[in-house]
Amino acid sequence: MALNDQQIYRYSRHILLKGVGGTGQEKLLNSRVLIVGAGGLGSPVSLYLAAAGVGTIGIVDADEVDLSNLQRQIAHGTSDIGRSKVDSAAEQIAELNPDATVEKHPYRLSAENARDLVAQYDFIVEGTDNFPTKFLVNDACVFASKPASIGGILRFEGSTMTILPGEACYRCVFRQPPPKDAVPTCAQAGVLGAVAGMLGTVQATEALKYLTGVGTLLSNRVLSFDALSMEWRTVRVKRDHKCPVCGDNPTITELVEYEQPACAIRPGEGISQTRDEHQLSGVR
């Protein structure tokens, strides 16, 4: 039995679950998950996956912790302001669960590194604040045949879908990033901090379901909610045979990087989850 006594106690509430058990817990301990973005979504995702005993957690984020992040980015604390987010998150994860090893990737995900990076992991969670990265993660996962959860939040709303090899991908639903003028800036939009927790925990749950093999994943569906009315809805989507990346005759065969919205590259703004519209909610 690979689980030691401490682990049996730590993960007892997982072991109790039908369909998970000690076998599922061992799968988690042997799993590798890549989290793209250590912000509003990446914080709850990384903390719940660490607490769950996911053995290796890769975190990609080039940013430093900003005071304006702390309203929702719960993997970071006041004393972390100015520190690298991957360092800050790694420290909190280490405190939460020594079984979880963090692989720090303190740089931007790019067309150059995305494919190699996703290839090293079993499941990818995308929780960034910008569309170019969502498309980059999608395309890289399609090319590398990796499953991923892609999520977005804005104001009081959140949306997410899980992409699996051979099933609908993000591009089957959204062809390309929205026009820049359609996207509110970080200063304009705002987000309720707890909404990041609502969506991030959905994404963490999808990762845990995939890794343990329980349940039905949020594939070929887009889930969205409006926290103001607390209405949740699921829209069915399907793989598009004309999809430019996963279709029968793909026109995109290499990773492409779209231009970042202007505010994303303005120094001193504090790159944050609040900045961009989340395109996933565009299906409503």
Binding site: M1, I8, L16, G21, T23
Partner: peptide, 14 residues
């Protein structure tokens, strides 16, 4: 409880 069942389940799994 619940460790009696937790450990029983771990035995059964093997």
């Amino acid at each position: 409880c619940p460790y009696t069942f937790v450990k029983s389940k771990l035995e059964l799994e093997q």
